[in-house]
Design a protein around this nucleic acid. Structure first.
Lengths: 249, 249
DNA sequence: TCTGTAGATTGGTCGTACCAATACATGGTT
DNA sequence: AACCATGTATTGGTACGACCAATCTACAGA
């Protein structure tokens, strides 16, 4: 980082915003590559011709965006890092939480994605991946016997299955989208699994789905996917009527 | 906001993080509803038993997340607001931008989404929306005659069309996914539009697509969508070979 | 009644000082 | 010569105090 005139001084008013924008631009345009670090706060302070507080707030914003990682001590500073899925997931999660997305709308979206993923997974998934999918779904069956299973653990496995399937598309975008959705909406899924019947049917359905995918049977796999979302919608409807009844009492 | 013991003082170390977490928790748990405002910085400073800089940085982080909006002056402060799509779109856009998605992978994803959106749009879009879609696509035609059209403007219209279509699904998730993709990849699209032939074919294809959607002709609409992505892939391939040739020279 | 001005409130900025963590060099010990 | 300990410089984290700028409110005057 030997930049003499990389950043231009900022006048007044929304200085913090300006600084953040300039730093972000420098990062995104790869003037500063991942792994490198921005100048120290005290140096930026003079480069921008502003107070240190302004710099700190800008840095904070970038950190929040997931663009940088901050280390203390000598050779510390703001290191540019690659954005992780977790960032977009958190953002998505907050959005979904505040906007109380209707479960049916979410199901609709997931179903459409799942169908595409299934098609691609059958076409492109390797034999090893398909085998792993079957094994992972088989592990779900251990939850069938238990009276009061660990729902967190179950949700975890379910999430892994979804992501595993998405990875088989050999297109990272599907994997990211799936990760984001899973992370952003895990709480909902857990709640559904409280229903023993839904739990049982879904687990069984996962296994048949995995089998069809491994066998390369596209049509039957899609049918299974459809069946999953029928189950899901039924369960949601059941819970909603139950909730209404609770409210009435 | 008459909270005497809402927030607890923080000791030392990562005070800023702690403050941000507590404030965020208060917002998400709806102790402070959208429209209300947090206490002033100076008051928070007292409640948390910390310096004002810490408060400001925490506030900044929340603002970045899109949880609050800041107003100056008397009766100013940090007002809780509903998170907008733009926030999650920006987050996803940054992520996509940094991960240099392969254009073909992106096209694959977009095509799958577009097909679903088209189906839903035909089923659920109102007559007015369909009419608007046709009109908007017709406006694209003005770019056909021009020798050196304003590519930014063209990209803008294209983006609007895509989002308009997504909105017709009556499912907000499709809308914000589309927004995010548009934001994250506008630069890509613009570059493609530099090719006059691609520009012409795409514009014409948009119009026929809109027509089929308005007419409720699902199969033909899907064919048009497919045609769009054939054009896109051809153009990408052409540019790539051209780039290779440039490199050789 | 209307208007404009003064004051109060609140975010935005600056500057300094100090603390805490970390990396690195220096020097002493084995 | 190799190794360990201690000191020192660098850098983020916090605090305090002051002032500016924008905004709202209320009061006084026309």
């Amino acid at each position: 980082m030997t930049d003499s005139i990389l950043f231009s001084p900022v006048p007044v008013g929304r200085a913090g915003e300006e600084v953040a924008l300039q730093l972000e631009a420098a990062i995104l345009s790869e003037k500063i590559m991942p792994g490198e670090s921005l100048p120290s706060e005290r140096e930026l302070q003079v480069q921008f011709g502003t107070g240190r507080g302004v710099i700190r707030e800008a840095i904070r914003a970038l950190k929040q965006k997931g663009l940088i990682e901050i280390r203390k001590g000598a050779k510390g500073g703001a290191y540019v890092k690659k954005i992780e899925v977790a960032n977009v997931s958190e953002s998505l999660g907050l959005f979904l939480k505040q906007n109380r997305i209707d479960t049916n709308e979410l199901a609709e979206f997931r179903e459409s994605i799942d169908r595409t993923i299934t098609m691609l997974a059958i076409t492109r998934g390797t034999v090893e991946q398909k085998l792993e999918l079957v094994e992972a779904s088989a592990r779900l069956k251990t939850f069938l016997a238990e009276e009061e299973p660990d729902l967190n653990r179950l949700g975890e496995l379910d999430r892994e299955l979804n992501i595993m399937l998405a990875r088989m598309t050999a297109n990272p975008i599907f994997e990211w989208i799936m990760c984001a959705m899973q992370l952003g909406f895990s709480s909902h899924d857990y709640a559904l699994y409280e229903d023993a019947e839904f739990r049982r049917n879904t687990i069984v359905n996962w296994c048949t789905t995995a089998g069809h995918i491994a066998a390369g049977d596209l049509l039957q796999a899609l049918s299974s996917i459809g069946a999953h979302y029928i189950l899901l919608r039924q369960c949601v409807a059941k819970r909603q009527t139950a909730a209404v009844k609770d409210q009435a009492v």
